[in-house]
Amino acid sequence: MELHELVQNVVNAISIGSIYALLALGLTLLFSIMDILFFAHGAMYMLGAYATYYFCTKFGWNYFVAIPLVILLIGTFGTLIEKGLFRPIRNDHVAIIFLGIALNWFLESAGFIVFGLRPKPVASAFPGKLQFLGSTISWERAVVVIIGMIAVFSLYFFLMRSRLGLGLRAFAEDPEAAELQGISNDHVCSLGFFIGCGLAALAGLLVAPIFIITPAMGSHAVLISLLVIGLGGLGSIPGALLSAFIIGSIESFGTAYLGANITWGLIFIFVVVFLTIRPTGILGVERE
């Protein structure tokens, strides 16, 4: 194996890992705060991508103007969903998963009707490619790596260091005690959904130009994210980052040296065996 092949595969692994980490971030955040699995995360990602398409390609706005708008839009939508649909059954975790599945399905099918069948492209805001050590990566992927890392670390520090983050974590620890301390459960849930859906929209904004937009993209994304956060340990942000890179590396090197079709089978076997041996995932903690 030549050096530049190895470097190229490492670069591929990093790029795939960052994409997966970005996809899984919102999901793992919601899990860490509210202990729920928000299946419609995939639909939020899809809506974020379509919003980007409409703002940038259809209306011709500047990409950087679209970024905050899309995040705000989808975040607000997420808050509305939380208020209208999730709040009544907030504590029934299984019902919430089913509700998420149904919502995801609803938005996906409605997406096919509203947005049309044809896959949509978004022109990249970062054209060109970057070359080093004989390997290549397009700038849009490099941007995903950079912004993905920034998003992961800033979210982590937001949760760990800021007052708001402290409130969220207090809620995660014990909602009733947090309520007694003056932390409104309703506000925390709204904020959690806002940030979670906003992160899904961010993923849509950044990842969509690399790939192609269809209403069905969300389901695929949410299943991959589920795998990532399951392996990393539910609710653990560093764990999700780590497992995204592990899965990215298996995918990159597995595809390059074993074949494309066998790789995903290997990933599933790896996750199943790992979780059987260590049910909490890489960095997860035991939850009641």
Binding site: E5, Q8, I210, S252, A256
Partner: peptide
């Protein structure tokens, strides 16, 4: 000569292999 999973969207790894 290889087949990829039908829902694959990131072809960097497999194309790297092909180009080699």
């Amino acid at each position: 000569d290889d087949f990829f999973p039908a829902d694959m969207t990131d072809f960097y790894p497999i194309l790297t292999r092909i180009i080699q």
